[in-house]
Design a protein around this nucleic acid. Structure first.
Lengths: 219, 219
DNA sequence: ATCGAAACAGACTAGTCGGTTTGTTTAAGG
DNA sequence: CCTTAAACAAACCGACTAGTCTGTTTCGAT
């Protein structure tokens, strides 16, 4: 799609994102991106006026994909389960599957990347990061609010707190997984998060079997 | 303490750490550190042979302090409660207090910082990061193992998974807090983590009051 | 007082950085 | 076929970077 130029632009962004995940934005020089993408300086500065513009384009694309991925899995969960609470539990399970399907590769988050180099970016770019993280709250809020309303939680917890906890678990799990070079940490952290939701909204008897999808599949 | 030179070295490290928290390691130039610390190039390269050596010294100091802070709070929790599970709950509460006492300032983690710029550092430095994160597992393991042994958990959870979940919650909470500029996120995430521990090791009746320190203070 | 080493001070350098400039290729529209 | 603009290519530039080098100051031990 697009003419010939959009291929080059995508090659630049793909290479840049890969490098940023490895060494951060500041340490990723334009020349590094050029040789990784196999393009020249002229091509780069034809598509991006500055390196900062590349940085913004990268996070815009990441935010779009991240949101799409979340929305897609929410829809899948909505098809697999009828009540909001079960949908949430299925949703987390789907994330576990997605991550496990990556093998030994550990996913990375450009939002977190940028936050740790926050002073390098302008307000506009940081806003995209904040909105990208906020999107998780907004997309999950109706589900959590419904669950809190109908499944009276065992402890005080707001919808945003539970959405944040999911995101925090993922972000933290990625950090630990990267440091220990262990791709199993993140899905196991998500499993613990799912445990929390199950216990918080204790509809099941404490010792019940964990086969949740089978239980909730009748639409 | 120490002779005159150690003051300068500390000023350099303090300034460097502050800058690294704001913009990462790569974007913190030696010259930036010099002007922030009010020292000259000669002084800097007298105390550190390279910038990489400063990076290692920074994370070594951070790891020492982080471990000491954790050990201190474990000891406080041991004095405030007798059984391991209550000690863990108190420990998390102490962390909440510590973080809330910082006001609107949000703590930062040099380990996470370095992991997002991992390719900049040599193996030795990254090992210090990995060991620093591993220390949380090792220091908390006896407590969690005892809790799992005596308070039969409602779900499957290993000691390391629960230790990792605490750390992941903190790391993720710091990221979210920084992005949204909201210092209350991290302590509220810890509160949710404490909820999970309470529900996982359900000794209390579901609707019990949350005044845990008062309950467990009799040694 | 004297000596020597540790603790600086600051000019200097080789290389890298983001960005510019000028020129060439490509391909679609008239 | 000609025009025209997008899509490159690559030499080039000033600012900056980590690190060096040649001193000077400070201070405790003798």
């Amino acid at each position: 799609m697009g003419k010939d130029g959009s291929q080059t632009k995508r090659a630049i962004m793909d290479a840049a994102e890969r490098l940023v995940f490895l060494r951060g934005f500041a340490a990723t020089s334009v020349d590094d991106v050029l040789s990784a993408a196999g393009v020249t300086k002229g091509a780069f500065f034809h598509h991006f006026r500055t390196k900062a513009e590349l940085g913004q384009a990268l996070v815009e694309r990441f935010a779009r994909r991240d949101r799409a991925h979340l929305e897609r899995n929410i829809q899948r969960a909505e098809r697999l389960a009828s009540d909001p609470l079960t949908q949430l539990l299925v949703l987390v399970g789907l994330f576990e599957e997605d991550i496990e399907s990556l093998g030994s590769e550990i996913p990375a988050c450009l939002f977190a990347c940028y936050i740790y180099e926050a002073q390098l970016f302008d307000e506009r770019t940081l806003n995209i990061v904040a909105e990208g993280l906020q999107a998780w709250r907004e997309l999950l809020r109706p589900k959590f609010e419904a669950a809190i309303r109908h499944c009276e939680p065992q402890r005080i917890a707001s919808a945003d707190e539970l959405a944040d906890l999911l995101l925090a678990t993922i972000e933290g799990g990625m950090i630990l997984g990267r440091s220990h070079r262990d791709a199993t940490i993140l899905p196991r952290q998500l499993r613990q998060y799912r445990n929390y939701l199950e216990l918080l909204f204790a509809r099941w008897i404490p010792a019940a079997a964990p086969g949740l999808v089978a239980v909730a599949a009748e639409k």
